[in-house]
Design a protein around this nucleic acid. Sequence first.
RNA 1: GUUUCCGUAGCUCAGUAGGAUAGAGCAACUGCCUCCUAAGCAGUAGGCCGUGGGUUCGAUUCCCGCCGGGAACACCA
Length: 566
Amino acid sequence: MIDFKKEIADVLSRKMETMNEKEILDMIEIPPNPQMGDFAFPCFKLAKAFRKAPNAIAQELSETIGQSELFEKIQNEGPYLNFFIDKRTYAKTVIEDVLYQGEKFGSSQLGAGKKVIVEYSSPNIAKPFHIGHIRTTVIGHALKKIHQFLGYETISINHLGDYGTQFGKLIVAFNNWGNAAEVEAEPIPALLKLYIKFHEEAEKNPTLEDEARLWFKRLEEGDEEALKLWQWFRDESLKEFNRVYDMLGIEFDSYAGESFYSDKMPRVLEIMEKKGLLKESKGAEIVDLEPYGMPPALIRKSDGSTLYITRDIAAAIYRKEHYDFYKNIYVVGAQQNLHFQQWIKIIELMGNAWAKDCIHVPFGMVALEEGTMSTRKGRVVFLEDVLRKAVERTKEIIAAKSPNLEDKDEIAKQIGIGAVVFQELSNSRIKDYTFSWDKTLTFDGETGPYVQYTHARASSLLRKAEVDFKEGADYSLLSNEDAMHLIRMIQQFPSVIEDAGRKYEPSIITRHIVDVAQAFNKFYHDCPIIVEDKELQRARLSLVYAAKQTIQNGLDLLGISAPERM
RNA sequence: GUUUCCGUAGCUCAGUAGGAUAGAGCAACUGCCUCCUAAGCAGUAGGCCGUGGGUUCGAUUCCCGCCGGGAACACCA
């Protein structure tokens, strides 16, 4: 595809020898209104160097740049130099690019030869998979797909919370009040009940906490009874998690959780020791981070056992040695900002220059209308319930609107689950939000079903096509504003993907495919596609195809299906 | 208390590596299915971009203060 920005930068750089093409390229922007042009070059920054008013510079440039086939016109408006791309060229370039690339449209080789680790989801064993887990799960999955699309090799890791004092608690609870049959029958609810019970009892009897710590220490030392229970809890929990992952269409390359690193800790402690990082404090060992404006990091408890942070350090070192990553990305809630700052700093202090390649991608909290979610208090909304209800709701709508649809159940699944995922990926990661059934089950406006519906509409048109639109369309027939607006949206898709990757922000893609869908629906509404005039039909269908493919590629990156009918 | 994030239309949110008139969706009101899927399209209404300074030719965007809200801050993860 012709890179319009680059062409413009090329033209401009020949006129201004003091600036290199890269600088110019970065200055080129898209005007707020298409009537102002397709691309704009603001001249403010040149004022000093040229000792002239920006307006005058823009005017001079507009007069000296010769016409070419690429541009319909180049004109200045105040301090801006506005470029109008020849409409036929614009349409042809964009549509043919999509035709040629298909499912690859928007992809790049930016990350070729580089390996990126994405850690996400990471639920705690023996605890329910609730609505609070959806963010890390779907954001992480999207980031993995985005990086793949940008040419990176990716490794997805589900860093299971399968270790820690919580297992001591569970063992204590199971031994005191547990019942094997109950756990076999309904593992997570039974284990959750035990967990809640433990906390209730521990409030009355604090020695239970010590007992739990002792059991965890035994587990760390390889005690047989502890290990057996732990393995059992883990297996049963994973079965349940996989049910949700199946619904979401998510798989991981590795399930190496916290326990995986349990034997890699001593070496890490040794290095820290050697570097003189460890300090004794109140019987425990810490790293003093005061010089870096952070509270101290507790590395080893007074009873000798390790903590979360030690395991994260060990995990990062292991991953560097094992995968030699270009980037090591963690999709973990913003509550853990300090934790990440601390351990990444410690990695750096241990002498690892790659510490800067460990990237925490934080996101905001999910609350319920009745308050913060709390597993201990049993105040949770299960993710599986949310997904199931969304599918049920979709079935009702299909029954009302498309009673003759084939494969109703499969499509309802695609739409219902897609709606939940889409909503999750529509807002900036960092914002907190309150879960609401109402909002989750609404399918109008800027929602997943809206975008999927648009895709289905486009697909329907392509099925009805009476001409071969894949070749030789007369793109000058697409010069009306509705068509051009849609073409511009499609043109922006590749740079949107890059932006989303650079910012670790899938919502940029979500937002953009809504824009594409809106532009398509307007075009659809105003311009009949299957018309008598076969040349016009061919041209319009080619644009329908490009829009459909763009939406499909966008949805795919978000981990959402694009049904052909609905 | 310290650190950190957030504050844009009634509600939910875009927009900001400084740039032209701040945009959607929902809710409200009004139109459009003898016409390719109305899960749609169009229109009306709705804004001191929390607030006060500063930097700049230019600030919703950057810096500082204040107000309001969230989160984190040693033997949990």
